[in-house]
Design a binder for these strands. Sequence first.
DNA 1: GACCAAAAACTGGTTGACCAAATATAGCGC
DNA 2: GCGCTATATTTGGTCAACCAGTTTTTGGTC
Lengths: 235, 235
Amino acid sequence: MLENLQKIRIENPVDLIISQVRNLISSGAIKPGEKLPSERKLAEHLGVSRSQVRSAINKLEFYGIVRVAPQSGTIATGLGIVALEGLITDILKIENADFKSLVETRVLLEKEAARLAALNREESDLEEMKKALQAYEDKLSQGESAVEEDLLFHIKIAEASKNAVLKSLMLVITPDIVNSYINLKVCSESKTRVTIAEHREILEKIKNKDSEGATKAMAFHLDAVQDFSKNFKPQ
Amino acid sequence: MLENLQKIRIENPVDLIISQVRNLISSGAIKPGEKLPSERKLAEHLGVSRSQVRSAINKLEFYGIVRVAPQSGTIATGLGIVALEGLITDILKIENADFKSLVETRVLLEKEAARLAALNREESDLEEMKKALQAYEDKLSQGESAVEEDLLFHIKIAEASKNAVLKSLMLVITPDIVNSYINLKVCSESKTRVTIAEHREILEKIKNKDSEGATKAMAFHLDAVQDFSKNFKPQ
DNA sequence: GACCAAAAACTGGTTGACCAAATATAGCGC
DNA sequence: GCGCTATATTTGGTCAACCAGTTTTTGGTC
């Protein structure tokens, strides 16, 4: 009987405010560089309290839609495109993404990171990567799970690539990867030895500035996971 | 004379709180899943007001370090790796990235998006892309700059790829691309005709499900920009 | 001691008043 | 009318008090 009841959508008031303000910008009522109405006026017009408007503006600032200038005002940035198509909600909501997309994208980033790392790495980078690899092995030898240490090694590679954007993007998707791996139990305990060997192989190629080899080693290393994502449908 | 004065760093108090809380987690004092001290206690211990603690926690939630449960408490999530190495500040701070890294990464993502779009696009995607392309041409024919419309076309491609993560990442770096392009005046007005032709070429390949061709067309399209970034040192 | 309901304490969320800096206005001297 | 300064207003930031749930403690009962 209760199944007949429709699920009602309880919209977060802050989200409603966000979409209103976003419309203000994307409709052209407020052009990039112009100031938004003050928090008080917005609150009054929308019939909500100032703190809620405040919270909404905070989020918008995070998304890069607006920039707040203390004691002066909130101005719309020129990045209208993000607001343009109601895409805001998509940004950083990768948690809804399917595992396949996640792995697919990860492989793409990782291969490029390995390639660039082989070209651009410095001695200090090699040290960092060695340390990360050691931490990973230590954790494993204690019989514990080491998903985070594993990924830390990969992030060190991204650092060695000297491409800050690449590293940032890897950091963005890393939490989701950790979650997925833990939830889906990707890491079978038996394969840890293989994993370590593969990590060492990658490190070696990067050390030798062999960009092609590093790319291939990384691709090989991630192959198992990728196959897993292709053949396995989560949920 | 004044040059001798050292630049003093005025640390944002909220950032200081963030790093303190982060240490609390990364040091292991608070394990994933455990609750943080209440906002009031944190405020008292740190000698600051609760609103500042509040603001800090808000940001930490955004970063995915903690999750707040209303009327219950704030709990640390299991994504320790991000907090582990003081990497937080890097996330989403792509604005500090150099133009070369930005373009390099963009090309990587765009090529993959084009490839996947050719494989996975549906009819509706083609419609969307056509509309975006039309909007771009209209804006240009009015003699106006159309950086945003340009990128919107590219985002539609990412949508057609059916890889949500890839699209999200493109959305993340898009604002920075817009900024860089505007600042560096990458888009010379004379080349718009060529650009339109290239866009059409990409669309055609995707329509024909020619993944290799789409990748190459995209690579060709972005070549000019990439060359620009290699030969030109910003600032 | 085991169990349970009532109440006290505690939680994050919200509010309206106040703060200092930035801005707009008014007034004055010329 | 013009240029400057002093004042008034507006701005986002901060704060302490309060709100409505949640959690813990408490006291009584069996």
